[in-house]
Amino acid sequence: MKKKVIKYSTLAVAAVIVLVNSIYIADLDKIKAENLSKTFDPASYAADFWNNRLPSKLPEAVDAGELVRMLEEDKESAFDNYSNALGIGNIRYFLISGEGVVENVEENFVSIRTGYEESPLEVHIATEYIFGNAVRDASGIIDINEFSNTMDFNNISAEINRIIRARVIPPFKEKVKKGDTAAFTGAMELNREILNLERLEAIPIELIIKNR
């Protein structure tokens, strides 16, 4: 009897020791952060996108004046042929380009008059509110299914926009004046169902002052 008590007590103690050493408690947020930092670096991804992948897409940008004409004549075809979006819904993005005269230099944007002589239009180049997915999505390069967590995907936009704010806007804004001739390539968001062509706004990718 005494032997049995010792035997079963020893087994019980051994079982508890094994159980306790099998369980690890760790802060979930810390583990998530560690895994995120190990597996994905949005800044590097965005830099690669900006330097190596996006430039080859820029020649495909549609002229802004031509796009407006197509949207007015056949909205559905224009959206089908020239816009990109990663999912479903009415918001879509266009890669656009243009050249024209700088009409206004304001706190939050610079407007450029471009388009055809018979139907000029004003494109507002955002210089303050550089946010959103326009540049990431307009190119059609990136596939959301590369990422298991959509937060990684979202962080790419933030990093791309950081590049634009640091490298594209300052040299342009320092020098641009009303009356200059400027060329732009950028990304523009439009709503397929609620199409508003009265105020066109683009996030810039390239900005060149041509007369200086």
Partner: peptide, 19 residues
């Protein structure tokens, strides 16, 4: 099927609420 299909969210303000 695509693994992830995002659906665009649209901003509703006093300026466009009638849509």
């Amino acid at each position: 099927f695509p693994q992830k299909m995002p659906v665009a969210v649209e901003l509703v303000t006093m300026e466009n609420v009638d849509d």
